[in-house]
Write a protein that binds this DNA or RNA. Sequence first.
RNA 1: GCCCCCAUCGUCUAGAGGCCUAGGACGCCACCCUUUCAAGGUGGAGAUCACGGGUUCGAAUCCCGUUGGGGGCACCA
Length: 489
Amino acid sequence: MRVRMAPSPTGPLHIGTARTSLYNFLTARHAGGTYVLRIEDTDTARSTVDFERDIIDNLHWLGISWDEGPQVAGGDDVGPHAPYRQSERMELYAIEAKRLLEAGRAYRCWCTPDELEAVRREQQARREAPRYNGRCLSLTDAERAAFEAEGRTSVIRFRVEPEKVRFDDLIRGEVEFDNALLGDFVIVRNDGVPLYHFVVVVDDQTMEISHVIRGEDHLSNTPKHIALIRALGYREPRFGHIPLILNPDRSKMSKRKSQTAMTAYRELGYLPEAMVNFLAFLGWSPGTEEEIFSLDELVQRFEIDKVHKGGAVFDRDRLDHLNGVYIRSLTDEQLALRLRPWVPEAVADADLLRLVPLVKERLVTLGDVVALVGFAWEPDEVVASWYDRELLYPKKGGPSDARRALEGARTALEDLDDADFSADVLEQRCRQAAEAAGMKAGEFFSPLRVAVTGRTVSPPLFASLELLGRDRSLARVDDALGKLAEVPA
RNA sequence: GCCCCCAUCGUCUAGAGGCCUAGGACGCCACCCUUUCAAGGUGGAGAUCACGGGUUCGAAUCCCGUUGGGGGCACCA
């Protein structure tokens, strides 16, 4: 078994492309087959190396690897069928196009875009399928010469046989199309650049691809490919069309309505293992009620014929949940390592490790660490700037309650030396202080929380105090007291 | 417009004729735990299996039709 993924570097790695790549990867690895990466960059105007890099990097990030094809953007190809970039395979396409031309299975067409557009409009008016009318199919030599003399350029069209085409889709079973409904489509542009439907067939043949697994949007293109395969005398691979990933409104997932760039999720702090698990279940399930799967487990369990037929909505809530599950499954040391890119370099590794327990059960994404415990590394003045005086007031209280609590807390904290400045002792002291102040614990803790973390929602208060240490905690209490001093008692 | 594909809670799904008074998960609601927020625990609401016909002793599961949704019909991929 040889399968391939064939992304087009005309944009960053798309969620849909990633899932198609994943399904191909899982199919190949499950069967012990070979996995090929081919870069479909025939659209030279829109393809860039930067996009190629984004695609390759993010596939690697997900843990997807391949046996043949470029391993690095712009890097050398690896494998017996190199090159794997279509832009470097142009001679091959030219040879095959010539073969088709000479066999009479393709012909040159001099129709201009305007002429084609006019025909299309007429057909639509007559409620017919818009397709090429075959005008250039039977031109005399004189007519061809006349077009050339006119300065017109020509494209190459494939002559489609009006026959029924059926194939046994890996996922959908028997599917039948009538190619009589198809027009003769263009396979080489007027500037000599070959088009997708043509190159994909040539490459799949020369790269000996046995299973073509791709998005459902290609299902209706398959009869074109089969026609080309037959005309060229190629072997017909098995086809499998996987369901589309959908926007919440159930249309094909698009940049316009959803975040489709894998990089964006990566930058937000989603874990690749969560993303892989999530993507795998968008259109497939093991048939049991298990739902947490590593990439290796997926390789073992994944079967292409158990893939669903219907599209699946990309549900961010579910991704978030999975990400939390994976984050919580990490050891503190592992999580600290993952968190590193989001935490300022000035924060020492040892200090980063200390704050992990405070955030582990609260992180949805790794990036959330900043909002959660930024107070730990931000200077006191910055934390003080995060809140207004009113935020210090307990739920059903005013400035005087806040002041009472903070003063009580200050006294309690002051007493402790660094060695005793631990969550347990702090809690005990603060509860005593609350009682002494005649306040409920919650009312007493609230102003202290805001003073220390700058927010009403934070990790556990006493662990936060411990993390900050005596001096910084006291300084923040004083900052808060200072804010309260601005209002007359 | 034409062709093709699809159809189980809001979402992801289990379900291959009787195990289904349709199961799980996410989300939602309530309660418990609790210094806030989470995490965790318990419980709940939520699907006449799109609809209508068949087939069958029996259908979410098979067949046909309808409806709805989606995809494709480029000198993009």
